[in-house]
Simulated scan of single mutants.
Amino acid sequence: MVKLAVEALEEKKGEDVKIIDIEGVSVIADYFVLASASNANQTQALVDNVEEKLFKAGYECHQKEGSMSSTWVLMDYGDVIVHVFSKEDRLFYDLERIWRDGKIVESVDEL
């Protein structure tokens, strides 16, 4: 699921795509996948592509927070939570710092 999400984000030119393994530090999910978008249209394109790819693979989004006009959209797939941010919100909320006890996965090949 993480590999598909990353692929979907990269296909639509998501910026600074990161994977954080939080399995050992939280019960809410195993992985966070983060990406930045340069504008609202790109945010929507990233979200749509993730939803489409994961749906076709048989994964259903349990909950989605945010909308087309949002600067942060969260898609909850259970074990994987995908965050798509504007660059400004990503810096402001700084999930990488908040979840620094998790492990940054450098490549999907490590999964």
Rank of each mutant, 00 (worst) to 15 (best):
35 A>R: 03
48 D>I: 07
111 L>K: 08
35 A>K: 00
73 V>R: 04
51 E>S: 11
66 G>D: 10
30 D>W: 05
80 V>M: 09
5 A>Q: 01
24 G>W: 02
13 K>H: 12
50 V>F: 06
40 A>S: 13
28 I>P: 09
52 E>F: 08
41 N>H: 15
23 E>F: 09
63 Q>K: 15
107 S>D: 15
91 L>A: 15
37 A>F: 01
91 L>M: 14
5 A>M: 06
23 E>Y: 02
108 V>E: 11
110 E>I: 01
26 S>L: 11
64 K>N: 01
106 E>Q: 13
78 G>M: 00
78 G>C: 02
107 S>Q: 07
82 V>N: 03
6 V>R: 06
73 V>K: 01
11 E>T: 10
38 S>C: 12
72 W>M: 07
20 I>G: 10
89 D>F: 12
15 E>V: 08
96 E>N: 09
32 F>D: 01
26 S>W: 06
23 E>N: 12
104 I>V: 15
42 Q>H: 13
85 F>V: 11
99 W>R: 05
46 L>D: 00
31 Y>D: 02
107 S>C: 14
27 V>Y: 08
18 K>S: 13
49 N>P: 11
57 A>R: 06
84 V>G: 04
96 E>Y: 01
34 L>S: 04
105 V>P: 10
36 S>I: 03
35 A>N: 07
2 V>L: 06
80 V>T: 06
88 E>M: 00
98 I>G: 11
28 I>W: 05
78 G>S: 03
77 Y>N: 08
75 M>K: 01
19 I>G: 10
95 L>G: 12
38 S>R: 08
2 V>R: 02
20 I>Q: 08
4 L>S: 14
86 S>G: 08
13 K>L: 12
18 K>D: 02
31 Y>N: 05
28 I>T: 07
21 D>N: 04
100 R>C: 13
67 S>P: 13
65 E>T: 08
110 E>Y: 03
58 G>L: 10
31 Y>T: 03
24 G>K: 13
109 D>M: 09
88 E>R: 04
9 L>D: 02
2 V>Q: 03
73 V>E: 06
31 Y>P: 00
101 D>P: 00
3 K>Y: 00
20 I>D: 00
82 V>D: 05
55 F>D: 09
91 L>Q: 15
43 T>M: 15
60 E>T: 11
31 Y>I: 02
82 V>P: 05
61 C>L: 09
46 L>E: 03
103 K>P: 02
57 A>Q: 06
59 Y>M: 09
70 S>N: 07
14 G>S: 11
67 S>R: 14
79 D>H: 11
40 A>R: 09
29 A>H: 04
83 H>Q: 10
66 G>S: 12
78 G>D: 00
95 L>R: 08
38 S>Q: 12
24 G>H: 10
106 E>F: 01
